[in-house]
Design a protein around this nucleic acid. Structure first.
Lengths: 224, 224
DNA sequence: TTAGGTAATTACTAATATGGATATTACAGA
DNA sequence: TCTGTAATATCCATATTAGTAATTACCTAA
């Protein structure tokens, strides 16, 4: 706890696992790295400045790189292997940012949004148009941890609703859960559990435009 | 992702929430801070060196300050408010180290082991001989988060067994759970759930020295 | 207008898990 | 040998859950 001034310090970065569910699949927003000696696709990130907290850094990165400062986020974990970045010692505090697919639609990104698939073995893999893309740094491992965390928190927290718009149908909730868990669920028990939990309230309105019987729209009950 | 060399960096520290259960109470090992402008009691910690990973730093701090490098630990979260340390910008990666009370018995610490109590309101409070002691930095908030995490993981992970010696009785397991949850549990259902889970195996041996009927000793089944 | 198709919603039943009380067993010490 | 205490086993009522089947509602197209 001494030498606070002269201590040789690692760099500290914030990396964002910006997750969404599109067409029943869990996906991560990745950016292609600039031309340096670390090729591949990576989560967007930025360094922590001396006068900004971690949360402020996350908001800054969201605004700078994604143009979406409003997304809700929560901390996942911190990764600090000595050689995880070949350019120098970087400790990354990783946050998950969860948002509905629509929120990323008009994204002013020059980089490409890349689907992520493949939970098998706990290792993530970036995929674009069916072709496998390499992930930079330890980001494959990190995305594997993201999925583990999402699965673990799915049925006791309101984390799943972060992927949905303000008003949603029960089917949409189930689609999100199935995408995260990677398996199909039975409809009646799922609906019952969801409604019994008391986290959502019916709006009395119904979806429109569908070809068949419209489902009722629900909203998330505000937190106490 | 530029200026890896010249970037003005925060300090990075590892702080340890060394938790144990003694006499049915959850306690944290705290050290009294040296005389500087941050008074109070704090979790032991140390800075992250350029050539050591986070895990290696934890092992180093455990060896240096506690003399117990063998304790199992896991990451809790990272705290990075700008003003959390008045001496300068410090980002703390906090780890939980869970150990049986016996492991801390012969501890070569010049500092004092302090009981921690008071989950009420989610704010921790250091207590010694019934007198309240102030916690330094944001360590009260962090210890509150530790308890939340322990409670959350208690019944789907093997985290509770980290507080017990290799061979233990079912009653000891229940005591640990009650200490962490802060409430008493019914014995028969607790035993059933524990045994049905298949995480522990009976040794066929029994405790000795007790005044009454001896309980069977169990061990934790090794992880697959 | 009306029949057909599909998905939303409800109703029902069997299986399982849970909580809690009660009884039985085993040991130490008087 | 008796007594006290805690470990262990037994039991039952209740709550929860999974799954199947039936019903309802809307859109489409003839």
């Amino acid at each position: 706890m001494s030498n606070l001034e002269t201590y040789p310090r690692p760099s500290v970065a914030v990396d964002l696992a910006i997750m969404t569910v599109v067409d029943g699949a869990l996906k991560a927003l990745l950016v292609e790295r600039p031309e340096d000696n670390v090729p591949g696709w990576a989560m967007p990130g930025g360094f922590v400045y001396l006068d900004q907290s971690l949360d402020q850094t996350v908001a800054r990165v969201l605004a700078e790189k994604v143009g979406q400062p409003q997304v809700r986020f929560e901390q996942l974990a911190t990764y600090g292997a000595v050689d995880r970045d070949p350019r120098g010692r970087v400790i990354s505090v990783v946050y998950m940012a969860l948002c509905p697919a629509a929120a990323l639609a008009g994204m002013p990104l020059s980089t490409i949004r890349v689907a992520w698939e493949g939970v098998a073995g706990g290792v993530a893999e970036a995929v674009q148009n069916g072709a496998s893309l390499p992930l930079a740094f330890d980001h494959a491992e990190i995305l594997g941890d993201v999925v583990k965390r999402l699965r673990g928190k799915l049925d006791y927290s309101r984390i799943g609703f972060a992927f949905l718009p303000q008003r949603f149908t029960l089917r949409e909730v189930q689609e999100v859960h199935e995408a995260i868990l990677g398996r199909s669920l039975n409809k009646p028990p799922f609906r019952r559990k969801l409604l019994d939990r008391g986290m959502i309230i019916p709006t009395g309105e119904f979806e429109t435009g569908g070809a068949y019987r419209p489902a009722e729209l629900y909203t998330l009950k505000p937190e106490e």
